[in-house]
């Protein structure tokens, strides 16, 4: 009989377990979401595969591109000097729950939990994150995060697969990025709206050469805002441009009423956050 709690200490062991029992196993990689879900749903019979002891998945590295091991904790990300140019990701990681959850919760866990409100997902999306998955049967594959996120709490991970790492694109030159989280409190909040922006200016630091935008908590799955990016790209920032971007945003998101905030508030605040994010990034990039 399968144990209720299986703790593995190597990737091979994990993949073997997943290969054999993947459909029955829930991967435990920090557990800051999972434990709450188990408690709330009363699913005491769920079998857990504990992977935190697997060596090598806790590293942040640079080998021509920036890689983050799936088991890196949020605090590690906040404090990593290698991620200095991914400010939005560090800002997001610093706002996941509180210190306690940041010490325990992992990036891989946050991604696979695929919460509509996952703080790390908008910054990962604006940095074109790619997810590496491994399985015993088929080896490894790399998927764009955007394609990996299929829906609310639903990803492209197959039952026998393990997310091993995340790679980020090079940060743009003359660029700046930011993550803005809207919440009632300054910590331990589930985002009411979360928005990441990455803006690069042209050589004259006047026109927007590149812009990438992503949001969470305003739809079933965090997503990029390509339409707005296309609107802004090549333009100079102006009030009217930002107004237009804000109006477009309302077409692209599906805010809902929940206990944290009303649909009305989300729709009211999201364009303001967008304006603030783009303005801040452009200001930082110009200096």
């Amino acid at each position: 009989m399968l144990e209720r709690f299986i703790s593995v200490s190597s990737e091979e062991e994990a993949l073997a377990q997943l290969n054999a029992h993947g459909e029955e196993l829930q991967i435990l990689a920090g557990g800051t979401d999972l434990m709450v879900q188990l408690q709330q749903s009363g699913q005491r019979t769920r079998r857990l595969l504990h992977i935190e002891k697997i060596p090598g998945l806790q590293k942040i590295s640079y080998n021509g591109e920036t890689g983050i091991g799936a088991l890196c904790t949020h605090r590690q990300i906040v404090e990593s000097t290698l991620l200095a140019h991914y400010r939005s990701l560090r800002q997001a990681a610093a706002q996941v729950g509180g210190w306690q959850t940041q010490m325990v919760g992992t990036l891989g866990g946050n991604i696979c939990n695929a919460s509509p409100a996952a703080d790390t997902l908008p910054p990962l999306l604006v940095h074109d994150a790619r997810i590496t998955l491994v399985s015993q049967a088929r080896g490894s594959r790399v998927v764009d995060l955007e394609k990996f996120l299929l829906g609310r709490r639903h990803t492209d991970r197959h039952h026998d697969e393990l997310v091993s790492g995340i790679t980020l694109s090079q940060p743009p030159e003359r660029g700046s990025d930011i993550y803005i989280k809207v919440g009632r409190r300054s910590a331990t909040e589930v985002a009411i709206v979360g928005l990441a922006a990455c803006v690069a200016l042209d050589e004259h630091r006047r026109l927007i050469e590149d812009v990438r935008l992503a949001v969470c908590s305003v739809g079933p799955v965090p997503k990029r805002l390509y339409e707005i990016e296309n609107l802004i790209k090549g333009q100079e920032i102006s009030d009217s441009l930002l107004d237009e971007a804000g109006e477009m945003l309302l077409e692209l998101i599906e805010p809902i009423d929940d206990v944290r905030a009303s649909k009305k508030y989300r729709a009211m605040v999201a364009p303001r956050v967008l304006r603030e994010a783009i303005t801040c990034c452009a200001q930082n990039a110009s200096g």
Binding site: V36, G98, R184, R185, S186, A187, T188, V190, V259, R260
Partner: peptide, 16 residues
């Protein structure tokens, strides 16, 4: 009540 847990009931934190 709409607020039925401490996740939903917004107690301010020390940092606030």
């Amino acid at each position: 009540y709409l607020e039925r847990s401490l996740e939903a009931y917004r107690l301010p934190l020390a940092v606030d």
